[in-house]
Amino acid sequence: MPPLLKLILIRIGLGVLTLLLVSVVVFVATQALPGDAAKAILGREAANKDRYEAVKEQLGLNKPVLQQYVGWLGGVVTGDLGDSLAQGSPVTGLIGRRVVNSFILVFVAALVSVPVSLILGSITALRRDTKFDTGVTVGSLTLAALPEFVIGIILILLFATQVIKVMPATSRVDSGLPILQQLELFVLPALTLTLAVAPYITRILRASTIEVLESEYVMMARLKGLPERLVLNRHALPNALAPALQVTALNLAWLAGGVVVVEYLFAFPGIGSLLVDSVANRDMPMVQAITLIIAAVYVVANLTADILTILVSPRLRTGLR
């Protein structure tokens, strides 16, 4: 078996193990929450002991915890995430469209923030200590210091209310309409996420590029008389990218979890806002499903970063044998 494939298989195995642990933690955590789904569904009527017990029985909440967990896990493996306690219909159907919405949101944010930060990071490194560098540094540190909901609110104030009203303040994506017809609803949430992650990637790439530019092999490339374009594109930047990969992956994975607050702010129908609602409703199957999806994004992002790092570092690649 090729060593890289073996490594990938091992890592996928470890990823599945991680997800399993996550599901246990989440399951235990939901059990620890005060109140249960039956109470949440019945509201005031929960005072009626008989009805409460009946609903609990119907939801399977009376079974031993372990049995509930094993039953749920068996469903997950066969593609059945169970029924939503709050809405009564299958979880898969309820979250399908929302997963797509969130995915598009994160994808757009990543598509903008990654190239922008790579470019800004390398330019600031190349123009180190110029006004441009100082400006970007101050700007990115400021953005990094602001929580993403503050950034979101500022964007809403700027573009959706008083100052220039060009964007909708809320992003209630209509699941009945094609997404292409409501693209403007994605702009502000995606911009918020972009501004939240781009500073980190920019900073790390600036630092790693500076380190590489000071390296002896870049000095050697210049002393060989290579044009600056070749020095940067062939000798400097590829080596600067490796350390930035891990940070980029972590940030993109964070996007998947970070959408929670941003989606809520913009009333965006994605998995984030659904997660918040589901926690409030004690809708355990829903919470479990969404957490697993977010955890899976983390696992996949890190795995991808590790594989890419190996691919761009000959020392690691040849060391696999």
Binding site: E216, Y217, M219, M220, L223, K224, G225, H235, P314
Partner: peptide
């Protein structure tokens, strides 16, 4: 002009070639 003579008419052998050769290039 400088690029033209560096590595051409005048060249340089570094102290530590393990650091002066690019680790990511053949």
């Amino acid at each position: 002009a400088l690029r033209g003579i560096r590595g051409g008419r005048i060249s340089y052998v570094p102290q530590d070639s393990s650091a002066a050769l690019n680790p990511a290039l053949r």
